[in-house]
Design a protein around this nucleic acid. Sequence first.
RNA 1: GGGGCUAUAGCUCAGUUGGUUAGAGCGCUUCGCUCACAUCGAAGAGGUCCUGUGUUCGAGCCACAGUAGUCCCACCA
Length: 883
Amino acid sequence: MNKYENLGSYDPSQIEEKWYDFWETHGVFHDEPKEGAEPFSIVLPPPNVTGQLHMGHALDGTLQDILIRYKRMQGYNVLWLPGKDHAGIATQVKVEKQIAEEGLTKYDLGREKFLERVWQWKEKYGNTIGRQIRKLGSSCDWTRERFTMDPVCARAVREVFCSLYEKGLIYQGNRITNWCPRCQTALSDIEVEHEDEIGHLYYVNYPIVGEDGYVQIATTRPETIPGDTAVAVNPEDERFQSLIGKKLLLPIMNREIPVIADEYVDPKYGTGCVKITPAHDPNDFAVGERHDLESIMIMNLDGTLNENAGKYNGMTREDARKQIIADLDEMGLLVKIEETKHAVGHCSRCHTTVEPMTTKQWFVKMKPLAGPAMQAVKEGKTKFVPDRFANTYIQWLENIHDWCISRQLWWGHRIPVWYCDDCGKTIVSRTDIDACPHCGSHHIHQDPDVLDTWFSSALWPFSTMGWPDQTDLLKKWYPTSVLVTGYDIIFFWVARMMFMAMEFMHEIPFRYVFIHGLVRDSQGRKMSKSLGNGIDPLEVIKQYGADALRFTLVTGNTPGNDMRFYYERVEGNRNFANKIWNAAKFTIMNLDDYDESFVPAKEQYTLADRWILERLAQTEEYVSQNLDKFELGEAADSIYNFAWNCFCDWYIETAKARLYGEHNDDRRVTQYVLVYTLTRMLALLHPFMPFITEHIWQHLPHTGECLARAPWPKADPELRFPEEEEQMERIMDAVKAIRNMRAEAHVQPNKACAVQIAVDREDLRQAVDAHRAYFEKLAHVETLTLLSKDAPKPDNALATVVTGMEVYLELRGLIDADKEKARIMKDKAAAEKEIERTEKKLANEGFLAKAPQAVVDKEKAKLATLKEKLASLDERLAFLAKL
RNA sequence: GGGGCUAUAGCUCAGUUGGUUAGAGCGCUUCGCUCACAUCGAAGAGGUCCUGUGUUCGAGCCACAGUAGUCCCACCA
């Protein structure tokens, strides 16, 4: 009876749930701030409570979890703080859609009732998201979970708003901003997506007052003509010098407007004359300010034209455009229409064409804030990985415009500003007020608007830790160690966290920004709802397990680059998990007499033991090095290779002979090495595949509560065997050569064969001699004869020359001399080609003089080996010729 | 108009500061259900490292130019 419970067959769905519950209920993910322990902290980019997690979240979460689990095992004092984002406009749009299905609008419900509905939504989807994150295996500290509208966060938002206002860094202004007529709110610049569209350039004549002539302008948006208050020309433009100062009759409106000179106009584009509509175009707005022009709003907030548009009052933008063109045509003022490609702005949420509008909004003055944020990155206090993203970040901040932070929405942090209806004063307050502090009036009302959702996100690294109080969390874990996020939100979020942190914490928010790309579909397209090509991570987990999904997301690409998602790859990684599972099953199956107290003396390790221990140590070093460099894919790859190609394919195979052999010590040592190697391999793999590794670990002999809290493997200097590793590699080469010849000669796989090996390196000779069992087990060799290098060679055999050895496979029947000759010739040609290259290199004086000695020596050694090989091959050919 | 990224096997991608006989997974071919695993094992085929020029003793890697694809930023009516 085995004292260790063995594994059944691998079924991820059966083990994953169980271990997450275990970890969570045992507080494995929760650390208290500890004196003397190095901190490591990450704040989870809070997913929007709009709905479900997508593959991007799965990637983001996997990368973070790998770093967190790695550091936790290394003994760091770890905090991974999860949370969710209220996602103002996005969530509001969702809920509006939901109530629209009931035939209601938000106005039917009113602000309060509507917000109740949004909170219900938040509860529902917020919980779903929490479950999804757990399914992925993310080891967040749920006891410290935050929501951007939690009271602590709200307090931080108020503090920051008021403080910035007091410093003069937040101001209110009637300025032109991007306006979404569907959402009916202002948007910041980066919430507008520009897309090239084919539009029309309309050439229109504006009659000159008191003369017969016209001034010809060109516009893509004729519907804004009613709002024109000037026509501008370039002051240097000789064609139009005489026009400057004259009046034009604005068609349709029959209003007189001046011709002005402004350098903004490019004489080479269009007609060189530009209609100026200050209320509805950002450039024109600037021109209007310079020339003190009137600004006429001709649109309502829903994008229809208003009473200032005269007869077009009430029309939609689209209808007004058609009608105005028709009318101009009728008046004979429409000269021509050309097709033109131009960038049109769309609302990033609902894709409605954005309308520049002049409205009263709140802004953050960006120039003073951007400086320190850029400085921190330039000085390397915060590092981007890969570092090229630092450039995009800095370039953006260098050209930053003021940030419009007010939104005409209901869902979000209400702007903490009150207006007194009696004395007209504006009151900015950290606490809610019910009376005007200036005149005592109770006739006050709060600003109806809310803040851009990114305003609260910008404070996330410190608001979640209780700022403005100096909490223990902040003391221990701020600044955070690394922020993991996609390149698509560097502007929205990363940059803003940086400047807010520099302003309020006087310290960076994170030491590293680890940037990843997008997860695309198998054809390289962005996953999107409209294309219907999105893949639900939960579906994948259900089918293949979270471990396989995680491994897929972390391998096969490099930091910062997009990746394509293939089910084939997930399947392959599920197979890898299955492989690990079965290796463990094999190990456990052979532990019935396992002695936990037994530790082999160093000299008891046999060749294969030493080989796998050396490879393990190398892998341990390599994995840590790469994790430290954020090269997670490279780290994962090396574990995969070690587990499959070293441990399973070779070590386990050699172990079989010794487990079932005569010598009791062999068995005990082998058991020890199997358990030792497997356990450490599982530890290395744990950050990547937490579930299966924990499950197996719990079934193996172990000390400690769980693998998630087990120490991270560090290469043991006492168990390094570089020489034996090399010898084992030579033996493996010989085994592969035998297998190859067997296949070529169509020897039945289960048929035993006779092999002779000529070897003159003494250490190798001994190694081969002592480990004949490997050849029996791995290549079905029945009799193995060792020859000295100059001994007569077998006649009826195939031959292969590997480094340090000539390997002969004896055949029962006669060999086909021609075929064999051809085989040897192929080897010879390859060797000759390589010899030629190497000799040429070594004949090059420049190479000998300038290349490092080590490189030269390596080439020399290579040449010697090759020549030896060539000699052996020639000898064999000569022999064959005699047959 | 600026800027980034990508180009390596049929497909998807690695290639760690310039020195390998250029690698992996999948796919493909041949063989094998051998007592951990057919979600497997063994053997094998398959590459003008986008093109050109240059730097260097030496280039898949560095520089310049070009081609193709892709993304971001930008107020040209």
